[in-house]
Amino acid sequence: MSSSAAATDLHAPERAGDYTSTGLPTGRVAIWWFLASEIAIFGGAVACYLLYRLHHPEWAEQAAHTVNAAGAFNTVVLLTSSLSAVLAHHAAEQGDGKTAARWINWTVLGGLVFLGVKAWEYAHEIGAGLVPAKSLFWSFYFLLTGLHALHVIGGMTALYVVGRGAARGQHLGRVELAAIYWHFVDVVWIFLFPLLYIAS
């Protein structure tokens, strides 16, 4: 899309990541700013939850109704999927799109398993009458995990699209961005799991 006449040092070609003012890849700069705004969203929601929680020690009793085993299993699943995301990134850096795509598929699979378990939990809880309107604890539980699940879906979609490109050897730089985003989704869960499932 750009004429790449590299005449002098100063008049090097523009556009499409050839030249950046800071030397950092543009996508990486963007994803970190994007994550900063995401942190503000989760930060706000989690801060609200913590403020209430500190005023309501009795919530610990309600938190006991969450399925710790499912939460712990999902934590392991997400951590494992983050590992495969790291491996995908590594492969992409070596220029090996095929391998990167394979690792990405594992990560997406991890996301699917996570969502499946989460769906089972929701069904189990709603079946037991533990709906969002049951109490403020359950309101927060569904708010925070629901918001997180939406991000899991978003991250999986991004990974899937990037993985398809990587399999054809295109846009390998994007593997890193999707992986960074997936790590973020993972880290959010690592905060949510103890706060919602096991804290007393």
Partner: peptide, 14 residues
């Protein structure tokens, strides 16, 4: 904007 709007997004969901 990006650092201040997040909590309100959460508030809007609530």
């Amino acid at each position: 904007f990006m650092l201040s709007v997040g909590p309100l997004v959460a508030g809007a969901l609530m």
